[in-house]
Design a protein around this nucleic acid. Structure first.
Length: 216
DNA sequence: GGATCGATCGGCT
DNA sequence: GCCGATCGATCCG
């Protein structure tokens, strides 16, 4: 599993390096896991889009804590979102996990999500928390602790050529922070959220072009 | 293919 | 009171 030192770095570095790693949830002895394909950075009280922008509160307290812990919040009356805390204890910064590619425990994911397509199991921050049964009870848990119910496993690195960036989803505004390209995702992954139909078609074409799928 | 809207509730102005 | 780091359905062009 990834250790504290991984998360105890500059937030944009951690954001970039989290792409491709495997998020693992252990629930009732079952492993539910996915490859991280979309993330966003939220960096400190100077970031007008960060929950910590107005200081420490009961809700965002874990974002101010030490790196390598979870920050889970409840939003819109029905969804949870998972962040991984970065930077020093006392500094509020975290990486929002926005989408996974399902890898293990598809059955458990579907049991949590209902009868949806594989693509919709873990695409979007609210969806992946539902699939992995992540809620406020996991807020503040240490992802680096032995036996943690939630942690991250090392997986092959994503090359720079496959990483794309964009402004963060759901963040509006003209200031430098609000329009900063702090969303990073795996280019061409069908599990990335907020794709246009054109992007979806490109991803499908890339998938069909894989040697293992080629006919004749 | 994009815009809009309702659901639903905890947290904070 | 108001609004949100969302999701999914629906409507329109």
């Amino acid at each position: 599993m990834l250790t504290r030192a991984f998360f105890d770095r500059d937030t944009l570095t951690v954001t970039r390096e989290l792409l491709g790693q495997r998020l693992v949830r252990e629930l009732d002895g079952v492993r539910i896991a996915g490859r991280i394909v979309e993330v966003e950075a939220y960096i400190g009280q100077g970031d007008a889009a960060c929950h910590a922008r107005s200081g420490r509160t009961k809700r965002n307290a874990s974002m101010f804590g030490p790196p390598g812990h979870a920050y889970v919040y409840f939003i819109y009356g029905m969804h949870h979102c998972l962040n991984i805390v970065t930077e020093l204890d006392g500094q509020a910064a975290a990486v929002l996990i926005r989408a996974l590619e399902p890898v293990e425990g598809l059955g458990a994911m579907r049991a949590h999500r209902g009868d949806v397509s594989d693509r919709r199991l873990t695409t979007g921050p609210g969806c992946l928390c539902q699939a992995l049964a992540i809620d406020r009870s996991l807020d503040g848990v240490d992802l680096c602790a032995p036996g943690a119910a939630l942690f991250i496993e090392i997986a092959p690195r994503i090359p720079d050529s496959e990483v794309a960036v964009s402004p963060r989803i759901g963040i509006r505004g003209d200031t430098a922070a609000l329009s900063a390209p702090w969303r990073m995702y795996l280019r061409g992954s069908e599990y990335v959220s907020h794709r246009s139909r054109r992007q979806a078609a490109a991803a499908a074409a890339a998938s069909n072009a894989r040697p293992s799928c080629k006919e004749r």
